[in-house]
């Protein structure tokens, strides 16, 4: 039985590799830098999910904190004499790495929630507007244009001033700002696809309007949306971090990377850079990787790469 396991595993890898997704992934990985960035992003997700089991200090767990270990630089010796704080400690002796892991969890959680909601609302709105083509559709798209004409953070601040602060309101504010990106992308893609001849052919064959929208048009809109998704996901992470840095995002009780950077600012002048700079570097890395992934996705779907070379 155990001899079969590697065989089964090999078979399923083979199946995966030969499937459409496997082939797409192979094409994606041709750019090694982008492949590394994708792995790093995946790595961050794994850390966010599994990290709490390995973290030295959990938020709110005051017992594990050693006051004697406060303000230690990264990789320096603790009071006991061992090296346990990879990223150093803050003024209370809390391990920066642990706080960063939990901050990462929160940031990713907010980003997923806000992006998921924005994606759902935006895609439905964009698709409906492309299909309906009436005055209501035009009104929706005009609203989208207005939202997109000014920077997101301004609107986010505005929404927070109306809704109030807190974790849910932060997610809501970001969601209200972000849905417009997906609405516009989906509308543009769907409008372009609806004009194409294969849609007309499908109508002539007798397919219903919903059939055409969801089975013919929607699958072709996925590539451009995926590019926007990758880039905007990174943007949302940065936006939440900025809001938390300003003290207007997540409350102090909930650790977030932006909040960590803000907390550490006062110690910066004294030379304790690691409290602010290191969590910020994590943000930088995450957003950078998402941007590279988004770029690679965009390159992959351009028609030149699909056919490869001159005609």
């Amino acid at each position: 039985m155990t001899a079969l396991v590697p065989h089964i595993r090999a078979m399923s890898f083979q199946r995966l590799a030969q499937s459409a997704f496997g082939r797409w992934l192979a094409r994606y990985n041709e750019d090694r830098f982008a492949a590394v960035c994708l792995s790093v992003t995946a790595g961050f997700l794994v850390i966010a999910l599994a990290g709490p089991f390995f973290a030295l200090h959990k938020p709110g767990d005051l017992a594990a904190i050693e006051l004697a270990d406060s303000m230690l630089a990264p990789l320096s010796k603790s009071a006991i004499g061992d090296v346990r704080y990879v990223l150093g400690t803050d003024v209370l002796g809390r391990d920066i790495l642990s706080m960063a892991i939990f901050g990462l969890r929160t940031s990713l959680g907010v980003a997923f929630a806000a992006t998921g909601g924005a994606l759902a609302i935006g895609c439905v709105a964009g698709l409906a507007a492309a299909h309906a083509q009436g005055a209501a559709a035009a009104a929706i798209m005009r609203t989208v244009d207005i939202f997109l004409s000014a920077p997101s953070i301004l609107f986010a601040l505005l929404f927070i001033s109306i809704l109030g602060r807190g974790a849910e309101n932060t997610v809501l504010a970001i969601l209200l700002v972000q849905w417009t990106h997906y609405a516009r992308a989906m509308n543009a893609a769907a409008t372009a696809e609806l004009k194409k001849d294969y849609v007309a052919a499908a109508r002539l064959q007798g397919f219903s309007a919903t059939d055409i929208l969801f089975r013919q048009v929607l699958p072709n809109c996925i590539p451009p949306i995926s590019v926007i998704l990758a880039v905007q996901f990174g943007f949302v992470i940065a936006l939440e971090a900025s809001l938390s840095f300003l003290g207007l995002g997540l409350p102090i009780t909930q650790p977030s990377l932006g909040g960590l950077v803000a907390d550490g600012q006062e110690y910066l002048m004294g030379g304790a850079y690691w409290i602010s700079i290191l969590p910020g570097s994590i943000l930088l890395l995450l957003v950078f990787c998402m941007n590279v992934v988004g770029d690679r996705l965009r390159v992959l779907q351009s028609p030149l790469s699909a056919r490869g070379g001159t005609c």
Binding site: G234, A238, A241, S242, F245, G258, V261, A262, Q265, L268, M269, G271, Y273, S276, I277, G280, S281, L283, L284, V287, F288, N291, V292, D295
Partner: peptide, 22 residues
């Protein structure tokens, strides 16, 4: 260039402060 616009603005500010001011 991508690195440039991926860096959170507040982080860049703090890094610059650390290098040039501190």
């Amino acid at each position: 260039a991508v690195l440039g616009y991926s860096a959170p603005t507040f982080w860049v500010g703090l890094v610059l402060i650390y290098i040039f001011a501190v």
